[in-house]
Amino acid sequence: MKNWLIKKKSGLFCEPGNFYIDPIRPVDSALITHAHTDHARPNNKKILATKETINIMKIRYQDNYCKTKQQIKYGEKININGVHVKFVPAGHIIGSAQILLEYKGEKVIVSGDYKRRYDKTCQPFEINKCDTFITEATFALPVFNHPNDKIEVKKIIDSIKGNSDQVHLIGVYALGKCQRLICLLRDLGFDETIYLHGALLKISNYYETEEIDLGSLKNVTEIKDFKGGELVLCPPSALHDRWSQKFKNVIKGFVSGWMTIRQRIKQKNINLPIVISDHADWNELIDTVKEVSPENVLVTHGREEALLSFLKKKGYNCGSLNLLGFEDEDD
């Protein structure tokens, strides 16, 4: 990366193209990798993103989602002041993209957040060659080896069977994790109605308009009295909020890559830890860098030091980009 892509207070800035990528405060022109709130923020003048990202921003921010918008399809090429821009799937959540930039023959990929596992709710990560690869580092420690999704989801089903007198309250991120988990449950034959916190239902309804079938869902408010054995999904923040006090006799679960670590489980007061992540684990991060085989690697948000130390020993030219404003502890 030469001098045309720089770190500014508002985030990563492309000088010749005069746009930011995932800016942390409102700017004139922003390219958005995906709709998670730490990457897609409201009140930008102009945004360029995939259809799904734009739609979800609209649901979340309503009138403030932006002044003007431009949709871009995966694989479509756009020229912005001599900078060639292309969005390709990142496999993170619905509509998530890596942004490929090419300027004067030099190629940079801003990969945003990504994962490499199969996820029914989004298109898989696509490998593209480039000179500089900017990677996230959320789970960049060799202690993170995400287990098989199915084994983890089965723990929820087994726990419901074994503790049918208890309500299962499971914390999931409203966008992406929630719908992926529901699909995994349905694939394993769990046909019961799943009760959702309002915040999750809004996004899940949107998924259904994108023809992702989530089965029978109901708003938690539709039921007065939970008898036990029900599965309720809510945002992680609601797990220990006053909201959750209406459930008596409850098992609390949390679906996140952090649930690998016992002390995280304890810190969050979780009885049923489920390790499913929408980020690449250690081996997947390393394999991705190998497959992309860039000349330079820049590492941002997460446990950068370990990945940098590893890549340096492997002979990569790499450095820390250290973009601020991304939620380190959230999955």
Partner: peptide, 18 residues
Amino acid sequence: VDEDLFLYSYDYVGDLAE
């Protein structure tokens, strides 16, 4: 296991056994 990676991991996890 690479020594640096062990140290980063240990520092993060905060428990030797784990």
